[in-house]
Design a protein around this nucleic acid. Structure first.
Lengths: 227, 227
DNA sequence: CTGTATCCGTGTTGATACTG
DNA sequence: CAGTATCAACACGGATACAG
């Protein structure tokens, strides 16, 4: 089972084009989504499985092997007592983020895009980095906390820039608590916060005005007319 | 056979993430490479087949149908006498170029990338748009012609910007004639022009100094250490 | 609990040959 | 030139059984 480091799949495009090579590396089913889920830090096998509904254990194993072999991620043994194995992107793996951003921005114009589908916490946070509009945040400084399931994230906005990463809720001006799709509904489907709160889909703690402005910072591009 | 407009493949990720939706749309094998080949203008079925070594007729048919159905390309009947059918990207299809750029830039760092593989003319021109370094072209203005097989392209460099598209050779300061991989060798593998010319891999006409500078404008990022 | 290995039904892919 | 038909090989997903 000692797979050689740096081997291409048998079935590869015979093409010197960089994009074609990228597809040889990470173009197989699920590969990019596994990388996406690791984009905000290491995860365990079962975390990955949970955030990728539909992937089966053997396919996930296969993809993790592939991605390790090509140098996109590494497996690490966490020190005891939490002696679990985690998968972590290499620096080069982390550099793939622009791929998700251009894919996401392009697909956001698709008439077939269905925003009501399930959404992972990592996807939501990455979408904030992708869709953030510096214009709308001009001169604004805020710190937003997100609690999604048992994970917590910090979003900092300052100087027309955004940071979105794993982090503590402490010190946030306002905290959103709820499943990722509910927060997405507020931000991308312009669902009024009151509605979501009344429906118990979302909970807010802290400065409501900050929340109200936050949800306006991520405009979607116009959809292509459905032909 | 009347496939409905705007349907997703049966096998799709159940994920509201934009990147996942993009993969539902164009993540199937060959789909993105077909789009790449159309990026510089319409092509016919056989042109596509010729520039995508390895694709089989039935798969190309399938992908063209899929891409038409989702609104990425259209089929057009050329007016007589050249009454051939051509495939052309829609405006939204053309907007996918950043996807190729981020994929290509990321994969250019791969230790497994083999630049000696076959390369299509369109790939080469797109790589110029992707890898162009404005710094190195500061204050330079030039017009380069490329003759690759029976296709011709024009590259214009001015004001730290590059344009690369189909166009006539007339008016170029210098003309490169040869297969795409030979031109790529000069630009990306730093193969001396004299060597390529002596080996009859490349032919130059016009201002040699312009050619010498042109081949320095597209620096590759450093490779990841091969681990 | 955290993965890994194996089997199996099904759908996708790709090579070859063939038709309008 | 522009595809279609057929068939073999492979990849995927689900289930189950197994190992640390």
């Amino acid at each position: 089972m000692t797979s050689k480091v740096g081997t291409l799949p048998k079935r590869h495009y015979n093409d010197a084009c960089g994009a074609a090579h990228a597809l040889d590396l990470v173009g197989e089913r699920w590969a990019l989504l596994v990388m996406r889920e690791l984009m905000l830090g290491p995860k365990r096998f079962s975390d990955l499985r949970a955030s990728l509904p539909g992937i089966s254990a053997n396919v996930l194993t296969q993809r993790l092997e592939d991605l390790e072999r090509i140098g996109v991620l590494t497996r690490r043994k966490l020190p005891p007592p939490a002696a679990a194995q985690v998968y972590e992107l290499t620096p080069w793996g982390y550099e793939s983020e622009p791929i998700f951003q251009t894919l996401g921005r392009w697909a956001a114009r698709s008439p077939m895009h269905d925003p009501t589908l399930p959404l992972s916490a990592v996807s939501l946070l990455l979408s904030f980095r992708t869709m953030f509009d510096p214009q709308r945040a001009r001169g604004w400084k805020a710190r937003i906390g997100l609690r999604i399931g048992d994970e917590s994230f910090t979003v900092r906005i300052a100087n027309g820039r955004i940071e979105a990463e794993r982090g503590p809720l402490e010190g946030a001006d306002v905290i959103f608590a709820g499943p990722a799709p509910a927060i997405a509904a507020a931000v991308y489907a312009a669902q009024p916060l009151d509605m979501l709160i009344d429906a118990k889909a979302l909970d807010l703690q802290g400065d409501r005005a900050v929340a109200d402005r936050f949800v306006t910072l991520f405009p979607l591009p116009p959809k292509v007319e459905p032909r």
